[in-house]
């Protein structure tokens, strides 16, 4: 099967104020198969968000290359089929939930009627049909994350990048969101790359988990999680895999 996302020896330095530079990523190789879910775990500050930003084409790598659906990202044009959920929800405060979701479609300039239909559909998908007209400050943290998820899904992407999307939710809502995401991903045939601090979350969701070592960030190990879905976060198998991951991160 073809890789939907492939990072090839990606390195990145950030210039610092004093003329020095910070080495953030060192020769990162990652390969994510089409229609699979990959998790990236690692300590805070090891360059996970930077890696996603590079995959999303928001910042260029200093060395190496990213391939999306087999195409080098420099000549990739199907950006509409890739969406990015940031670490914070980034809802625009002057837009209602429905208008925030519609933001995902506006770049493409879809006709108004179609836009409205898709927005309503996607809001219903994340269980927020009744809150379409609410402004972000009127929503709870969990609801805001779901609006942000809806905004990422409304374009029906084939690749979804997520940066710690559920870290601010309480555990019961989080596992609800996990089910949602897996269901939608299966439905739409999406490839997902997501970053997390939470090894249990990685084991429950992902087909492959990549662990990063810090300073500079580089790939330590790639774990394949071949447990059947749905995975119970409290089951012994999940706990065992999480323990292995944790040990690999600490070494």
């Amino acid at each position: 099967m073809a890789a939907a996302v492939r990072a090839q020896s990606v390195s990145k330095w950030f210039p610092l104020r004093d003329g020095e530079s910070l080495h953030v990523l060192q020769g990162v190789d990652i390969e994510v198969e089409e229609r699979s879910v990959a998790a990236i775990v690692g300590a805070s500050g090891c360059g996970k968000s930077t890696l996603l930003n590079i995959i999303a084409g928001l910042i260029p790598p200093d060395r190496g290359e990213v391939f999306l659906n087999g195409v080098p990202s420099k000549s990739f044009t199907e950006w509409r089929s890739l969406t990015y959920m940031f670490q914070d929800d980034r809802l625009l405060p002057w837009r209602t939930a429905a208008q925030n979701v519609a933001f995902g479609l506006e770049a493409a300039g879809a006709p108004r009627a179609e836009r409205r239909e898709r927005v309503a559909e996607t809001l219903a998908l994340v269980g927020l049909a009744d809150f379409a007209e609410a402004y972000p400050h009127e929503l709870s943290g969990g609801m805001r994350s779901r609006v942000a998820l809806a905004r990422s899904l409304v374009t029906r992407p084939s690749i979804l990048l997520m940066d710690e999307p559920f870290s601010k939710l309480d555990p019961s809502i989080r596992s609800q969101m996990h089910d949602e995401v897996l269901r939608v991903a299966g439905l739409m045939g999406m490839t997902i790359v997501f970053v997390t601090h939470d090894v249990e979350e990685a084991v429950v969701l992902a087909d492959t988990v990549v662990t990063l070592k810090p300073r500079p960030g580089r790939v330590q190990e790639t774990h394949v999680i071949n447990l059947p879905h749905p995975r119970d976060p409290l089951s012994a198998e999940v706990a065992e895999r999480a323990r292995l991951l944790r040990r690999s991160l600490q070494s």
Partner: peptide, 27 residues
């Protein structure tokens, strides 16, 4: 800057970023 980055992630044009992020901020 985060909102501008969001708009860039959705591949909005310069004119769209002005209209959809700058204008509402300044209004």
């Amino acid at each position: 800057a985060d909102y501008v980055e969001l708009a860039r992630a959705f591949r909005m044009s310069r004119a769209q970023i002005l209209a959809k992020i700058y204008l509402p901020t300044i209004l």
